Each structure stands twice: as C-alpha cells, then as structure tokens.
Simulated assay, not measured.
Amino acid sequence: MSPESPEFTTVPVSLGERSYDILIGPGLIARAGEEIARRLKGARAAIVTDENVAGHYLDALMESLKSAGIAATPVIVAPGEKSKGFATLEIVTNAVLAARLERGDAVIALGGGVIGDLAGFVAGIVRRGMNFIQMPTSLLAQVDSSVGGKTGINTAYGKNLVGVFHQPQLVLADTDALDTLSPREFRAGYAEVAKYGLIDQPEFFAWLEANWKQVFAGGSERIDAIAISCRAKAAVVARDERENGDRALLNLGHTFGHALETATGYDSSRLVHGEAVSIGMALAHRFSAHMNLASPDDAARVEAHLKAVGLPVSISGIPGSLPPAEKLMDYIAQDKKVARGALTFILTQGIGQAFIAKDVPFSAVLGFLQGK
C-alpha cells in the first residue's frame, strides 16, 4: 500500500530538504514500522511515551517496529504537563544515550503534546540533532503540536521558554487513538481545531458550528477536521518556519492561555492546555471588542460555540484561586510573543480576521484583566 492509499490522508509540509509528510487515518500505529523503515533505513529508535499511552499502544508499536527490523528502546515517563520540565528532560536524555543511539537513529514521540514537545527537544539536542518521528495520540497533538517543529519544556517563568526548532521526519496521526481519549481531553484538542477557523478560515468555523457533533462522534467529519487543520498549519509553517512573521497568528489565544497555565502551576486537574487556549481565544476576541477592533457580536459567537462543545471561556471557570491581574501581566511579559519589552497579541477584526498587534499598551491589557 502506497502513501497515497485511500485508507489515510497525506498532508505534505514543504520545507525544502526538511520537508515531511503528515499521514492521517486509522491503523497507523500498526503500520508505523513500515512507514518509518521506508524513510530511515537501518535506524534504531527510542520510543518516548507516558504511562497512560504505553498501556494502550506501546506493545502494538513495538511489534510494528520489530516486524520492520527496527530495534526500539521504550522510555516511559509520568503523564501530565509536569513531565515537561528539566528533571524529566534529563531522565529521557540519559535513557537515549544509555541505549547508545546514534545521530542517524530516531526518537519517536508516542503520546500527546507534552510527549511530543519533550521528545522533540531531546531529539533536537542529543548528539546535536537526531531523527524525530511524531506519533500524536491526542487531538490537540494531531492538529497542532506535532506539526511545525516547535519543541521545548516549561520553567517556573513560563511555558515553553526553553526549547529548539527541530522538524520531524514524519508525523503519523492514527485517528483510532482518539477513541481512548477522555471527553475532556478531546474537547481540549478541539479548541485548537476551532482556532484555525478563527484565524483566517471563517467558512471552516461556520462548518464546525454546524458539524461539531459529528467531529466528536468520529468518522469522516473528524478526519476532515484534522486534515483541514493540518493543512492550515503546514501552509503557515512552510511560509514562516521560525515564527518571524505570520506564524505568530497560530498563537491566537495562547498569550492569555499560557499565562493562565503558569498561574495554575501546570496543574492539569485545574486546567489543561486546550482549555487554556479556549479561554485565551475568548479573551482575545473580548479584548478586541474592548479595543473597538471587532464587534462584540463576534466575541459572543465565539464564546457560544466554545461553550456549546463544553469548553471554558472565562477565567472564573478555572477551579481554585488565581493570582491578581498584576501577576498575570508578569507572566504575559515573559511570554515568547514579547519583543524588546513590547506586548504583542494576536487580536481580531472579526471571525477569521486575526492579525498580529504589536506594541499593545500594557495598561490596556491590565485594565481589561482587572475587569474580568
């Protein structure tokens, strides 16, 4: 069966000699060995995964790799955002070195966004760069974090502040894996799907408003939504690999969202990344209306859809206490979207009309947050 098989969809990411394919469809974990062996002849691998994902898919992946002649060493870490830090980075790095893997071998990320970011960072720094394979098992990772080469870990100062750009050689998005997600995790991933419509595809957002129940139920609408999202991200990455220009649009909702994740100490029982993005997108649209850039009706429409699928849209929806607005501004000021001290936000002039707003007044954001 060729990569053009009707059993899965292929989305190319065009980056010259660093180009790669995203394969989307059912059964890709079982055929991973064949797909990897075709691209990395003679390679060995480390499989970085977490305890939850390992219970579902590690044995099947190990068997697939073995049948393709790929020797693999599993490296299993604790699930959750707290594994995305220096301590776990050291553990995984040492495990890859202990396995005596070489630069031409591969690090495989089997899991959600945390695993992809962590394993990709390891692949980017061990031996100054190893081959990297993304096998995202969450919706959020399949439509966003597995594509584009951003890797990294969190620190006490903020989310994703230490990392490297390191493109994968291949992304295998097995849609069967989404059936084992909790409803909460699937909803969280859906926030990133909605984001692509809100950036510059208003017709896609309208389609999601009409078809989100089918996307949640599975089937062709789900695969369509994932493929559209991946094509949208692949097109932006091809134009702006290292976020020097319009790739920053992909951060819609993330500046507010990252600050909220930092404020909760990356405690996934309180807030997971997609939920933070959902609140962040609602805040970005509300702030845009507050600044008279967009209609309040658009902000209301965004919030209505996110609420309909069960996502939070306000800071008050986060369990537990949060620091005051002034402290949230400290976290925002540490964000990677800050340049030479000036605040940069992704704001909007309406549904599907996001833009990069530079030199946003600190006082305007603070006043907005104080009113929340």
Rank of each mutant, 00 (worst) to 15 (best):
P6T: 04
T9H: 06
T10I: 07
V11G: 07
V11R: 01
S19P: 11
Y20K: 05
D21H: 09
D21C: 02
L23C: 05
L23M: 00
L23S: 05
I24D: 02
G27A: 00
A30I: 00
A30C: 07
A30K: 15
R31D: 02
E35M: 11
A37G: 13
R38S: 15
K41Y: 12
R44K: 13
A45K: 03
A46D: 00
V53R: 03
A54F: 08
G55P: 06
G55K: 13
H56L: 14
A60W: 13
E63Q: 12
P74E: 02
V77T: 11
V77A: 04
G80M: 06
K84C: 05
A87Q: 12
T88V: 15
E90L: 11
V92R: 02
V92C: 03
T93Y: 04
V96A: 00
A98M: 07
L101F: 05
E102R: 15
R103W: 14
A106C: 09
G111F: 08
G112Y: 07
A123C: 11
A123H: 13
I125P: 07
F132D: 00
S138G: 01
L140V: 10
L140I: 13
A141P: 12
V147W: 02
V147D: 03
G149P: 07
I153E: 01
Y157W: 11
Q167K: 07
L172R: 13
A173L: 00
A173W: 09
D179I: 00
S182P: 06
V193D: 06
V193M: 08
G197S: 10
L198W: 06
Q201P: 01
F205D: 05
F205W: 15
A206R: 15
W207V: 13
N211P: 12
W212C: 00
G218F: 08
S220E: 14
E221N: 02
R222T: 04
D224S: 06
D224H: 14
A225E: 05
I226Q: 01
A227C: 07
I228G: 00
R231D: 03
A232S: 15
K233H: 05
A235N: 14
A235S: 14
R239D: 12
D240G: 03
G253V: 03
H258Y: 10
A263C: 08
Y266C: 09
V272Y: 05
V272Q: 12
G274T: 06
V277K: 04
S278G: 04
A284V: 08
H285F: 15
H285R: 09
S288M: 08
M291W: 04
L293W: 08
S295E: 05
P296N: 02
E303V: 09
A304K: 14
L306P: 09
K307M: 11
S316E: 12
S321G: 07
D330R: 12
I332V: 09
Q334W: 00
K336R: 14
K337G: 10
A342M: 11
A342Q: 13
L343N: 07
F345D: 03
F345T: 03
L347S: 03
A354Y: 09
A354S: 14
F355C: 10
I356N: 07
A357T: 10
A357Q: 13
A357F: 10
K358T: 15
V360A: 07
P361F: 01
F362T: 10
G367L: 06
L369Y: 10
L369P: 04
Q370V: 07
Q370G: 10
